[in-house]
Write a protein that binds this DNA or RNA. Structure first.
Length: 272
DNA sequence: CGAAAAACCTGGCAGC
DNA sequence: TGCTGCCAGGTTTTTC
């Protein structure tokens, strides 16, 4: 489900709600996720206060006052974080984890179980985080970096920018939109994209992500933020799951599979 | 080795 | 009403 703008939206609300709050109790209702939840480890945060709520790529990080402890959350495709007043909570299908605070509890629900929750003592060594590429808005995600790394790859440019080891946060929606804005065919070999195209692509990735964040992300089907509200950037999408090109009005949007993922593009705007 | 396909899951929808 | 097949904001693991 969620890419960087959706995760950022969830993280921001989470921060508003639980920063500096103490975890009174924890409950693992269903440990089965992408990896099993370490129930014993989670119990260890009882009595601890949340000192920091941050994001790295598509991961949400909750850091505790025992500063070595961090909960690492990935929402997978269908992970949803929500809150309920204590006493009004009723277990729902696919609820996995509860964190009780003073007057409310946090609920992690995940229909497809592709998400994950880890508790770690050494964040810098955490296996899911240590090989991640730069944030797309950081200075290290620049033209020299992208030219250098793409020259060694023969995958498509779409696969390149969706590879979290190369740059984090970009998934199927925003890769599709950024490539359209940059007039680059998604199937172009990464090492055949020109320098000026890559310059545009960097700019458009940053543009589309920041605009999406400002609108609370995109809801195609399931996504809701931690307040239960959808993201409004869906209305701004230009090609993802669209029928016609917004520029060549009568031209049908093409949909091809690139490494198993639907890839939408306009064959007049984006030529190979 | 790298690239492609399968795997992990559930639910909704189209078509017969 | 079923049943079948396909689809979905992701990522790891297996296979070729």
């Amino acid at each position: 489900m969620p890419e960087l703008p959706e995760v950022e939206t969830v993280k921001n609300y989470l921060s508003e709600k639980i920063l500096n709050k103490k975890v009174i109790n924890t409950k693992v209702l269903n440990a089965k996720l992408r990896w099993p939840i370490n129930s014993k480890g989670i119990r260890g945060i009882k009595g601890q206060t949340i000192q920091k709520v941050t994001r790295r790529g598509k991961y949400i990080l909750l850091q505790f006052n025992d500063s070595i402890l961090t909960i690492v959350i990935h929402l997978g495709m269908t992970g949803i974080v929500s809150f309920k007043e204590v006493g009004k909570y009723k277990k729902q299908k696919h609820d996995h984890l509860l964190l009780y605070f003073d007057k409310f509890l946090l609920i992690y629900n995940d229909v497809r179980k592709f998400g994950s929750i880890h508790i770690t003592k050494k964040l810098s060594n955490m296996f899911l985080l240590k090989n991640l590429g730069p944030e797309p808005t950081s200075a290290s995600f620049n033209i020299e970096y992208l030219i250098n790394i793409s020259s060694k790859r023969k995958c498509s440019v779409k696969e390149l920018i969706m590879n979290q080891k190369i740059v984090v946060g970009i998934g199927n929606i925003y890769a599709t939109e950024a490539l359209f804005l940059s007039k680059i065919h998604p199937g172009t070999f990464a090492n055949e994209v020109t320098k000026s195209q890559y310059k545009k692509l960097i700019k458009n990735i940053q543009l589309v992500l920041s605009r999406a964040i400002s609108m609370g992300g995109s809801t195609i089907k399931d996504f809701v933020n931690a307040e239960g509200k959808p993201g409004y950037f869906s209305q701004e999408l230009l090609v993802y799951q669209k029928k016609y090109c917004p520029i060549h009005k009568k031209n049908l949007i093409s949909n091809i599979k690139i490494s198993g993922r639907s890839s939408f593009f306009c064959n007049k705007c984006q030529t190979l």
